[in-house]
Amino acid sequence: MRKFMMIALNTVAILSVAAMAFASEGAAAYGDLVYFGAAIGMAIAAAGCGIGQGLGLKAACEGTARNPEASNKITVSLILGLAFVESLAIYALVVNLMLLTK
């Protein structure tokens, strides 16, 4: 039942956005949708990366508090993990800026 509800809600959401897209006429409306898409895309990317970085930092703080001797190893893993996550946010920014140039 829950699966069916999820599929139905997703279908309704997609159809409602598609109706907006079909209803729009001319380049101005298309441009507005591009701005909207870029903003939503950056927001989702920033939220995901923020959650990921927060989880990583939380685990690193807990690990360091439990075992202070392993602080150096944990810090290396933390720096690499945060750099990976942050590079994803930078890629999202690049892709969204590329969308704006279209």
Binding site: T64, S71, T75, L78, I79, L82, A83, E86
Partner: peptide, 10 residues
Amino acid sequence: LARFIQQVIL
């Protein structure tokens, strides 16, 4: 980023 984390933790 690496400098920031090291300064914060160490």
